[in-house]
């Protein structure tokens, strides 16, 4: 059960970065607006209503769309050869080197601590409406799952299937996806924490909070 937190922290400390590939969300003519090495910021403001740093314009059918950064980081690897060119959907345009925040470190380390309910297929996933509304109401994790309970709706080939929970009974401590997202096979969907393990998890979180400097 015990994890080697020191090792994990050391691992992240040695390389607290993640490279995010920014691809064209759809076809269009690209015009870069960010520069190599530029600092980017994700959405800000109390309600995250201020868009992040402008990365590039993608114009399709006379509609120049502003594509902004969704997280903080540093711009690298701008593919300048594509400037002013028509690109296909999914074309790699640049990367953002993102330094993991304390919350993200906690999320990542928790996947080692919590019991993970992974995606059985590459598919779209939704939380059952009751679960989602319960989560909205309560700030603290409180929804208890035991094997056989309805856990998640998987939308596959236009059909919705209710997935039953299998694994250690416990509380949904962490939801790793946004409702309606396409999730790759085996990627974590839910992080479950058995009740008698709660204290330990909180201790881990506390330790990371104390020991991780940003």
């Amino acid at each position: 059960m015990d994890i080697n937190l020191n090792d994990l922290l050391r691992h992240y400390r040695s390389n607290p970065y993640e490279e995010h590939e920014i691809r064209a969300p759809h076809t269009g003519v690209v015009k870069f607006r960010a520069e190599e090495g530029q600092q980017t910021f994700g959405p800000s403001g109390k309600w995250l209503h201020k868009p992040g740093t402008l990365l590039f314009l993608l114009e399709r059918e006379n509609n120049p769309k502003r594509i902004t950064a969704s997280f903080n980081g540093e711009v690298a690897g701008i593919r300048h050869e594509l400037e002013g060119c028509f690109v296909e959907a999914g074309t790699l345009l640049l990367t953002i080197r993102h330094r993991l925040s304390k919350e993200e470190i906690i999320d990542r380390i928790l996947t080692e601590v919590l019991s993970i309910f992974p995606a059985p297929q590459r598919a779209r996933y939704y939380l059952p409406p009751e679960t989602a509304s319960q989560m909205d109401k309560k700030a603290e994790p409180s929804i208890f799952l035991k094997p056989g309970d309805d856990a998640i709706i998987m939308s596959l080939m236009k059909r919705d299937t209710m997935l039953k929970y299998e694994g250690t009974p416990g509380i949904i401590y962490k939801v790793y996806f946004h409702s309606g997202d396409m999730v790759e096979r085996d990627a974590p969907l839910l992080g479950i924490c058995p009740p008698d393990n709660l204290k330990y998890v909180q201790k881990v979180i506390q330790r990371i909070k104390n020991e991780w400097e940003e």
């Binding site: 969300p25 759809h26 076809t27 399709r60 059918e61 509609n63 296909e88 959907a89 999914g90 074309t91």
Partner: peptide
């Protein structure tokens, strides 16, 4: 390559 077969704009 396009984002979706259902998007007329693509």
């Amino acid at each position: 390559r396009i984002a979706s077969y259902k998007d007329p704009n693509e």
